[in-house]
Simulated assay, not measured.
Amino acid sequence: MAAVVVAVVLLREVLLPFVAGMLLAYLLDPLATRLERLGMNRLVATLTIVGLFVVGVTTLIILTAPVVVGELAYFIDNFPLYIKTVRGFATDPDRPWLSKLVGEGLAYAEQSVGELTAMATAGFKDFLRSVWTGGRALISAFSLLVVTPIVACYLIYDWKKMVAVIDNWIPPAQRDTVRALAREIDDTIGGFLIGQGTLCLILAVFYAAALSVLGLKHGILIGIAAGLISFVPYLGSLSGLVTSTCVAIAQFWPHWAIIWIVPAIFFVGQTLSDYLLSPYFVGRRVNLNPVWIMFALFAFGYLFGFVGLLIAVPLASAIGVLTRFALQRYYESFFYTATPRATTTDAVRLTHCDKKMD
């Protein structure tokens, strides 16, 4: 375990395509196994599944990229106008408390738009220079797009062999226990990834559709981003709520009736997620507390960057299963179930009572 942790820390900058390939192989291996049971060769099934996945992701990017890029360009072009509108609202003489609260900050933001643009331009130039000189970013993008599918193909094809080798490492007397724990960890991780992924897609469609019907500018972009970020519980809804409310104030003020609809949309979405969608898609198979998931994502993301975000939920699930197993063994142990012995004070009291009775 110590060697694995040291290796992850030292090699975290080059592990992204391999961790992504392992995650992709883990998700697609059940489908390959099912096709193999239907009579298809394992290699053919692996190439077919990975090929269809790559084509599907590429098609999705091609279809959504123009919309996302257009929304981003539109938002950047209108950002100074939003700042002026919200600043005018904050500096209204009828609301002196609001002016003191946010007026100065908005004035500073308006003045620094040009500085931020200049900084962004300089940073983009530095990024291009680093790409051509060091080639680090280019290599990272290339490895993520090319190496990840290759790693996934090899892992899917050899998945059964790898599982058999790892199973052979375990002492025969402990194999049943380890296999049971591995099955529980697998159910927990698979249930969370599939369930939470489905939940994120549903929320993204709901937020984007509701904000677009309301007529909010950048509604599609904000809704999709809020839904996808909902992979971290409550983070997506909170970030989408703050961003969309600010845009709504800049766009619809002083029509408060329309502005209040925006928070209502996110309240309805989070309520449906907590009480209807999450219990159905996630809660039936996953025994992970949302607070534990958020802590794991933030902690591993801080330690290992984007690689940490990929391995946070699987590691948190494994730790949770092992912790529950350890507690179960502890409750069944003699150390926990043994009857307490009488202390010296209790023995003296019993002797004193016996003398009184005599």
Rank of each mutant, 00 (worst) to 15 (best):
I83Y: 02
P93F: 04
F124S: 13
D167L: 09
V113W: 06
L138G: 15
W159V: 00
A120V: 12
I166M: 10
R179D: 13
S140I: 01
L116Q: 04
G190K: 03
Y108E: 05
G105V: 04
D186S: 04
S130G: 09
E184R: 12
I83D: 00
C153F: 03
R136M: 08
A122H: 06
V86A: 10
I185A: 07
G103E: 02
V147C: 12
R87E: 14
P149E: 14
F89Y: 05
F127M: 07
T121E: 15
R175W: 11
T85V: 07
V147Q: 13
D176R: 13
D94E: 12
M162T: 05
A182M: 12
S99V: 05
D158G: 00
A118R: 09
G134E: 15
I166R: 07
L101Q: 11
T148R: 03
F142D: 03
Y157W: 12
T117M: 07
S140G: 02
T133P: 00
Q174K: 14
S112H: 15
T117W: 06
L144E: 10
L106V: 03
A122F: 02
L81I: 03
A141W: 06
I156W: 00
V165K: 12
R179M: 10
A173E: 15
L138Y: 14
I166L: 11
D176K: 12
V102M: 13
G88F: 00
L81A: 07
G123E: 14
A107I: 04
I150L: 13
A107G: 10
L193G: 01
V163H: 02
L145D: 05
T91Q: 10
V147M: 14
L81M: 05
V178S: 05
I166H: 04
G123Q: 15
R175I: 05
S99C: 09
E115G: 10
I139T: 13
D176Y: 13
S99A: 15
T117Q: 11
D186H: 03
M162P: 05
A109V: 08
S130A: 14
T121I: 11
E110R: 04
Q196R: 12
G190I: 03
W132Q: 09
Y108M: 01
S140H: 06
R136V: 12
F142S: 08
V86M: 08
A122D: 09
C153A: 08
T133C: 01
Q174E: 15
K161V: 01
K84W: 11
R87C: 08
G105P: 02
D167A: 09
D94V: 06
V163R: 10
Y154F: 15
A173T: 15
V151H: 02
W97P: 00
F89T: 06
F124R: 11
G190S: 10
A180F: 13
L101W: 11
L181C: 00
L193A: 01
R136H: 06
K160S: 14
W169K: 01
D176S: 13
I166P: 00
L138R: 12
W132K: 06
T85A: 11
V165P: 05
I189C: 03
S130N: 13
A164T: 07
M119W: 03
K100P: 00
A90R: 05
R175G: 04
L81D: 02
I150H: 06
G103N: 00
G103F: 00
N168I: 01
I139L: 14
I189L: 04
G135M: 08
N168A: 08
L144W: 03
T121Q: 15
L155Y: 07
F124A: 14
D126Y: 13
V151T: 04
K125M: 09
W169T: 01
Y108L: 08
G88R: 01
